[in-house]
């Protein structure tokens, strides 16, 4: 879909611009300090770099959707759209992102406060909007945000920092207006339809089934998360290039790699063994990793109807 067509498919979700306020001055606390407020099964969005490990609780981001943060001196935005179940990280440069109040394919449309161009979260690309009619088409530099649970994240990263409820805003972080993930209820239930009609529809999976998706300018591929957790290693293709999806059991997530030479790997107790007998962690195979993220199936298919699906 071209950018102008996308703009025409934008709908108001109800709140006006910044009616859902981004967190612009985040504070972080230790895992120990926050453990009294989070249950083991609560979803958190984890980010790790060489020097920093941070968790952003879903219970906080559901009220703000965007956290304008700085990680390792790089200005970033960690973003979450509750209606599409997507948590994504972007380098934001010198600007900050806000919540426009509009949705495309149920997905959060961010706007940047420097040019006021619209940026649909999943597409990570600028499109025209009423506040910036003809922005140059640009895409954001993305980084991996892992969707996992509080228990899994702190077990793997006990030193993690956690986004504090001290956001400067008066919001109820014990209340999710859409439902709950532990157990899945309300809007998050597998069979529930999306809030607004999707751009394209497909019934191979239930609307809220979770896929781990990866996309390039030439194509898209999705792996049903549940199947990946059973199969551990799955081969597929993305834009006619072989790719390999790898399950990571500690965080219950997956990674997608280009595998043009179709090298063979084996899964062994959470580690990946190559043909030479060397083992690698699932997140660090000697292949080129493609950015991948969790998404509700209806949302992924709505944006990428030509996607390959492994389910």
């Amino acid at each position: 879909m071209d950018p102008v067509s996308l703009r025409d498919r934008a709908v108001s979700g109800g709140p006006p611009k910044d009616g859902i306020p981004s967190i612009d001055d985040p504070n972080f606390v230790s895992a120990e300090a926050e453990s009294v407020r989070l249950n083991p099964g609560d979803p958190v969005f984890g980010v790790t770099t060489g020097n920093t490990t941070k968790a952003y609780p879903q219970s906080i981001l559901v009220q703000h959707e965007i956290c304008n943060d700085t990680i390792d001196d790089t200005p970033v935005s960690v973003t979450y759209c509750p209606l599409t179940g997507t948590a994504m990280g972007f380098e934001r440069g010198d600007t900050t992102f806000g919540v426009s109040g509009r949705l495309i394919n149920n997905n959060l449309i961010m706007y940047d406060r420097a040019t006021e161009a619209w940026w649909p979260q999943v597409l990570a690309t600028s499109i025209p909007g009423p506040w910036k009619e003809e922005p140059p088409t640009r895409s954001l530099q993305e980084f991996r945000v892992v969707w996992t649970t509080w228990e899994r994240w702190t077990s793997k990263h006990p030193e993690t920092e956690v986004l504090s409820r001290d956001t400067g805003h008066a919001r109820n972080y014990d209340y999710d207006p859409y439902g709950s993930y532990d157990p899945r209820r309300g809007y998050y239930s597998l069979r529930e339809p999306p809030m607004f009609p999707a751009l394209f529809e497909d019934d191979r999976l239930q609307p809220k089934d979770i896929v781990i998706g990866a996309r390039t300018p030439g194509g898209a591929v999705a792996f049903q998360k549940h199947r990946l957790s059973e199969e551990k290693l799955v081969e597929s293709t993305l834009d006619e290039t072989p790719v390999l999806a790898v399950y990571e059991p500690d965080l219950h997530t997956g990674y997608v790699y280009r595998n043009p030479e179709q090298r063979q790997y084996e899964y062994e107790d959470g580690q990946i063994r190559d043909a030479d007998g060397d083992t690698h962690p699932p997140e660090d195979l000697p292949l080129t990793r493609i950015l991948a993220f969790d998404a509700m199936w209806f949302a992924w298919y709505g944006f990428y109807p030509d996607t390959t699906l492994y389910a």
Binding site: V11, S12, G13, G14, P15, I20, P82, L83, L103, N106, L108, P177, Y178, G179, G186, Y187, E192, P193, P194, M195, F196, P197
Partner: peptide, 17 residues
């Protein structure tokens, strides 16, 4: 209402403009 009125979830009606 957050992103769409949540009463619609209760009655099972999909939102529109």
């Amino acid at each position: 209402a957050c992103c769409g009125p949540t009463i619609l979830l209760v009655v099972g009606v999909q939102a529109s403009a």
